[in-house]
Every structure is written in structure tokens, then in C-alpha cells.
Amino acid sequence: MQHDEHGDLVDPAPVIVLDEVSKKYVSGSHTVTALDGVSLDVERARFTTIMGPSGSGKSTLLHCAVGLDRPDLGAVTVDGVDLVGLGERELTELRREKVGFVFQSYNLVASLTAVQNTLLPSRLAGVRTRTDAALAALEAVGLRDRASHRPDQLSGGEQQRVAIARAMVTRPAVVCADEPTGALDLNRGRQVLDHLRSVVDDLGRTVFVVTHDPSVAARGDRVVFMADGRIADELDSRRDRLDARTIALLLTKLEAAA
């Protein structure tokens, strides 16, 4: 919370830049505007969370920001690369290189062990990553001794931590997560958040999280609130108090307005 006190930190170019991004979904006869001209910079080496009521467009924002989905209008840049006009294969390769993913659940390929899962992205990229690196990444999330276990032999929290290790092993520009603690109990959720936090604090990486849980958002450096496909408000630890209560109040206000 005292991060903004380190005012002398160099603030380089943002990792992700969204410029006037719009996205509509056609569902049957009616059209849903998921994003309505959203512009956002995701700053480097910070923990940014997106919050908002269901249907506010927060997940669509994340998908568009990392090239999982394509916006109808507007531009997206990831680590200096403009996503507009990239083919499916190029997008995949960009994600592989610059983005690490942690999902709510079912993060791991069931037939592969923890260490094999950790190595999967670099294998897919055709990069020879030493098993040491994967083991070190597992060590960092406290699962060195579970390396040869399969997902069904791991608890939900351990699975999420393996996913964090996997997300880190390729040294991506940004680690993004969609409700990373959504399927976990309080204690295990806290552990996972600790590890995500350390990705920023100890490794100086960028973390970008979508959540509806104020206690998750409270662990971040910056909270962006969304409503009706637009950015409705924002809290930044440099200026504002970032605690679960404040965040929850703001969220309730937005939900009431919706």
C-alpha cells in the first residue's frame, strides 16, 4: 500500500495498451455491447485488477487485452506489438511468448505431471527449457516436492499454484488471471494471491487479474471498475486507500446504478 511512496521508480511504457476498444456480441436477435470504447493502460511491474458486476464486460476486456478475442473496433498493443491484423497463428505465438495464464479452475492438462504442465508452453514453442527451470518455478510456489504428481493428485490450490509456475517459466511480459481464487477456500485463495503478489514484488513482473472479489482486488496496486462495457471508476494505491471495504462499497454503488 505504500507503493506510491516509492515515487522515484522509473515508470516505463505500459505492457498493455487498449485504445477505444469496442466489442459487441450478437446473441439471437439482440446485441450485447460488451465493450464500449474502452481505453486502458496496464502499467508494467504492477498488479492491476479489473472489477465489475457480472455482464460489465470485465472478462471481455481481459480476453481482448491478451489476444484471446478480437475487438470490433479500436487497437490493442501488447508489449509493443499491435494485435490488429495478426493471424490466429501469430496471435498464439504472441500469447505464448508474452502472456502467462492462470484460470479459475481446470488449469492443467490432466494427463501430464506438474512439471510437464509447467514445461508445456515452452515445449509448444519448441524452446528447450531445462527441467531445472520448471522445478525452480515450482519451488517458487512451494511445490518442488509435488513436481511428479498429476493434477488429480493435487488440491485445487496446488493446481492454481502450478498454473502460476507455468505462467512464470517462460518469463512473459504479463501474467493474467481470470478469477484465480474463484474455486478456492479463503486460506488457499490467500496463498495463491501471495504467490501472484510475489510475481510483482520479487520478480518485477506485471499481473493483470479479473475478479469480482474485493479481497482479491485489495491485494492489487490498481483497481479498474467496469460497468456496462465502460470504465466507471478507478482506485490506485498511489492515491487511494485500497482495502476490501472501500472496494466493496464502490462495487455496490456501481451495481446499484446498473
Binding site: L68, R96, E97, F103
Partner: peptide, 16 residues
């Protein structure tokens, strides 16, 4: 499907 989607998400191309 889910597993294949996961592989796609963590960097598997359609061809892979």
C-alpha cells in the same frame, strides 16, 4: 475440448 482449449491458451497453435 477444455484441455485442447487450455493447450491453445498456453501457446499451442491450431496446427500443433
Amino acid at each position: 475440448r477444455r484441455e485442447l482449449a487450455l493447450i491453445r491458451a498456453v501457446g499451442g497453435t491450431p496446427g500443433q
